[in-house]
Amino acid sequence: MFRFAHPEYLFLLLLIPLLIGVFIYTSIQKRRNIAKFGNPDILAQLMPNVSKVRPQLKFYFQLVVVFLLTIVLAQPQFGLKQEKEKRKGIEVMIALDVSNSMLAQDVLPSRLENAKQILSKLVDDMNDDKVGLVVFAGDAYTQLPITVDYVSAKMFLSNISPELVPRQGTAIGSALDLAIKSFGAKSEAGKAIILITDGENHEDDAIGAAKLAAENNIIVNVIGMGKTDGAPIPVPGTMSFRKDKDGNVVVSKLNEQMCKEIALAGKGVYVHADNTNGAYKVINKELDKLAKSDLKSTSYSEYNEQFQSFALLALLILVIDFFIFDRKNKRLSKIKIFDLKDKVTK
């Protein structure tokens, strides 16, 4: 397969017709200026060293160099091939609560940011494991299908915010259902869901979804974010907090009992997150207990760079162009190649 790494540079090829137009215009103007002094045929005899072909040849060489250097800048690449390889690891789906209550700052810098830091560390510890991401509030969405692309996983994590899910709420059951469906083909690899939430205002059958996961040999580990005595929810971009319809400041509290019941139903563990690495260490230890098995995954080899040959050819043409003069060489013009041939034949 062939591609350009930076195809935007190919727009420089538009310079070629522009340069041709300028060259034609200047050639016409040059002939007109010569015609002003007299008959061009007679004037040509007075300028025997002036060459009509060499300037054109140099111009063509320079056009080719422009073309080749444009290709070099666009960075042509060949050789993508798709390979199947096997990895030994586990499969982990992350279900992350992104409701507005996760903006509360009873865990610094906020519940959501603290959760993202924990998840980032867990992803850093993964080698051949698969990881996927589901975000939820009032609805649940797959943010990242299960993959071994940890760079993409961390990129998606860093960009998560409550704006990703328009409808507010805490649809934990829907998130768990979606996470269960997001696992890859059946394998012997250990599977786990890491649910990160404050558990507040859950609105569906989260316990039933956790039981369903356990029935499918999927462990549900829960990280509870926040404190049970609660904290106000900041309004982004302001110094104020969210208020109810009566004008009272809304205090969001961690529903720790619900989180524990979900973990129990999912045959996993519950851990409360704080400003230490405690939650990360507990979950990481639980993941290490899962059985690792062969995971089939698709990998892609890197493209092979091919710009070098274009650059060398451009350099060679520039060297040749350097030694081609606009005027005829007096010494070389005295050599009569055809006269020498005639003498040899005689």
Rank of each mutant, 00 (worst) to 15 (best):
D288I: 03
E203L: 14
K81M: 11
L176D: 03
I335A: 06
L14Q: 01
N33H: 15
S333L: 07
F67P: 01
K86A: 08
G169M: 03
S174K: 09
K191Q: 15
R54W: 06
M239R: 12
F37C: 02
H202N: 15
H6Y: 13
S27L: 12
N100R: 12
S120M: 10
G132F: 04
Q45V: 11
K81E: 14
V249N: 09
F325D: 12
S120W: 00
V222L: 02
L119K: 05
N216C: 09
N201M: 07
A214Q: 05
D198Y: 06
V344C: 01
I207K: 11
A206I: 08
L157F: 09
A35N: 13
E91M: 04
V123R: 04
I146A: 10
V135H: 00
V66P: 00
D139T: 14
L178F: 03
R111S: 01
L313E: 07
A273G: 01
P234Y: 09
V269Y: 05
F310C: 05
A206T: 04
V235Q: 06
A74N: 07
F23D: 01
V249G: 12
T70P: 00
A115N: 05
D229A: 13
I118R: 01
G169I: 02
T276D: 13
G190I: 03
M258P: 05
